[in-house]
Design a protein around this nucleic acid. Structure first.
Lengths: 152, 152
DNA sequence: CGAATCGTAACAATGAATGTTACATGAAAA
DNA sequence: TTTTCATGTAACATTCATTGTTACGATTCG
């Protein structure tokens, strides 16, 4: 199965947008994400429908963040993207008449539900602001590293 | 992403085999699983390499369980099947130079690791014997239901 | 008007899982 | 020994979701 990477992509895009005052064009974002502007529009369109970003057409148009970074969790973004399937493994025959299969499905299903609950809980605890903070930390560290390299 | 259902399939097959004293042919198992005998051989072959089942060719041949049901956990089976990817969502660009992406990846990665650990822990706690027991329970319940229906 | 930009439909490419065909190999029955 | 029933396995086909691409319409600004 090819992995769905939209959550990763929108996070990447949103943090880049957060670093910009001007709106960012789909082309610019596509370059950041190493992808295609149409893919950016398609995906960001979902965030616009949820009023997390706004888009403007024409000259000097582009995408802008419309909310406070601390008010958006990864879980919200996951939902906004349509809650894509989290697991790449699953039952072969979701509702079979076979009692053996039902027993198998039930055991697996329980486990998946539990793991999914944990994952969504964690996603609910992480905001865009948290990621921006972590980025800032990495950025500062990177600067320090650079200076050390220049001194030597 | 199309879901990987091999774990589900082998569990289903193993429980059916546990109900049989004679070895079961790939054809018979394929019917149980609504699939193709070659797929059965391919998948069961991995379990044979791990000595969880044995296969015999020729007349009256087929597949047989080679271990005690209580000694095999779902986690072992997952490993035997090559530890296929558990998640259907992930990072777009695993090792990017972009510090923004690194921050995003780190946050997601942490969450995935935690959820995966929980899932594997649960898989490690469930044996084939547990599933067989659950099947027996469902089977008994189904009989009861039948009798009630016949009385009325 | 014309260039920049999003909006969107339609289609192509990619990749992973599963299914299928074909044939070789081995074992037991006739 | 020949036939039949099995597994073993390579090669190829199908299916399905994700992502990428092309094309063109709609809008905004200079």
């Amino acid at each position: 199965m090819k992995k769905n990477s939209r959550l990763s992509a929108v996070l990447h895009a949103l943090l880049h947008m957060a670093e910009h005052d001007e709106p960012m064009t789909s082309d610019a974002l596509a370059q950041c994400l190493s992808t295609n502007p149409v893919v950016v529009r398609r995906t960001m369109g979902l965030l616009r429908d949820a009023e997390i970003v706004t888009s403007e057409r024409g000259h000097a148009g582009g995408w802008r963040i419309a909310v406070d970074l601390s008010s958006v969790t990864l879980r919200q973004l996951h939902e906004t993207l349509g809650e894509p399937a989290i697991f790449a493994i699953g039952n072969s025959n979701e509702d079979s008449q076979c009692l053996v299969e039902q027993a198998v499905n039930a055991a697996l299903e329980d486990t998946f539900i539990e793991a999914e609950a944990l994952l969504l809980k964690r996603f609910g605890e992480i905001t865009l602001a948290d990621l921006a903070r972590d980025f800032a930390r990495r950025h500062a560290q990177w600067h320090q590293q650079k200076e050390l390299e220049n001194e030597s």
